[in-house]
């Protein structure tokens, strides 16, 4: 499974994309694994306005990651 970080999250982590194998079963487990390696990033993922997308669909709250190929963490968006 691939994890993508956008915007300030990528700068904070020092990476924008990396594989997670074996894949976590849930979004909460993925966040726990990330937080165990990098507490600052783990805290930022739960920060205000940060959303998650599983296989390019936004999810609210908890999500199962069975069969998921890609999880992205999206800080507040701003286009235009």
């Amino acid at each position: 499974m691939r994890v993508l970080l956008f915007g300030r999250l990528g700068d904070l982590a020092g990476w924008r994309e990396r594989p997670f194998d074996p894949p976590p079963a849930t979004l909460a487990e993925l966040k726990r694994r990330i937080a165990a390696e990098d507490a600052t990033l783990g805290e930022a993922l739960d920060g205000p306005g940060v959303q998650a997308a599983v296989d390019r669909a936004l999810v609210r709250g908890e999500a199962t990651l069975a069969g998921a190929a890609e999880v992205a963490f999206l800080p507040p968006m701003s286009g235009g």
């Binding site: 915007g7 968006m77 701003s78 286009g79 235009g80």
Partner: peptide, 11 residues
């Protein structure tokens, strides 16, 4: 909508 909901991150 584009200003606050479009998936872009601006540095």
């Amino acid at each position: 909508y584009l200003k606050s909901r479009a998936p872009f991150w601006k540095k």
